[in-house]
Design a binder for these strands. Sequence first.
DNA 1: TTTAAGGTTGTAATGAATACAAAAATAAAA
DNA 2: TTTTATTTTTGTATTCATTACAACCTTAAA
Lengths: 142, 142
Amino acid sequence: MNTKIKNIKMYLESNNVNPTYHRIVIFQYMENSTRHPTAEQIYTDIKKEIPTISKTTVYNTLNSFVKNGIAEKLNIADSEVHYDIPDNGHDHFLCINCGKIYDIKPEYSKSNIEIKSIQGHKITQLHCYYKGICKSCRNDKK
Amino acid sequence: MNTKIKNIKMYLESNNVNPTYHRIVIFQYMENSTRHPTAEQIYTDIKKEIPTISKTTVYNTLNSFVKNGIAEKLNIADSEVHYDIPDNGHDHFLCINCGKIYDIKPEYSKSNIEIKSIQGHKITQLHCYYKGICKSCRNDKK
DNA sequence: TTTAAGGTTGTAATGAATACAAAAATAAAA
DNA sequence: TTTTATTTTTGTATTCATTACAACCTTAAA
């Protein structure tokens, strides 16, 4: 077993996620992905490597990741939830033309919470979603 | 017809929404509501006033409002979309305990876009969602 | 008083996500 | 090594929000 997988194992363990084969593969897939995949996309791609995997396992795994704080749900699109492995708190941009999601560099991000409480409500999370036309789609129209 | 309804009629008209009875009632309901209702909640409540209304009409109406910029979708909760009549751009807070959505006062809001473009992407919208434990739930636990 | 256009209704269909029970795998105990 | 217990995984069925669609109704124009 290579060091990368060993690192993932340790990382999952240290976050209360029992590092089974499926979970390691899914986490590795998400770490390598830049497209903020949906459960469906993860399922389809992982299936190439593990043909017997079930969609339920993907959902279970993602829910376990989210519950233990090592993955984040992005409610940026209307119909589907996208998933992200947050490195250092950054915002996201959704292209309303092509549907692609981009990372916004931390220096432009607004979701670094410094406030702990607003109007008496205890703040634990802040999600900021930008929307518009992405660079690529803007160029295509010219 | 009272002035309030007349005003709504004019407002819908000026935003390219043909002001039918159903649409006026739904818009009025949303303006008076502080709970950022879902389509289901709107349907249930409006049904008391217009028993023959269909759920499709509620969805059609809301989609028409959103398309014409007089209502906004809140993708703040996991399963359902909530709707808001945005007055002056403010953020929202979701209590992860009771599910209630609160308005964040504009002075604490982050979604006033001043930037028109980030990393080459043209920005047209910014949605910021705070989450945590609301004032009321915090008091209940004591 | 027809014709056309838009609005509404109800039912059917879609599709993401969950529930659940059986089977499989893994770990712990004897 | 066997037995038992616990956790995972699988597959199917179900739920539920939302949309599709065709029939019907309403309104306004011709």
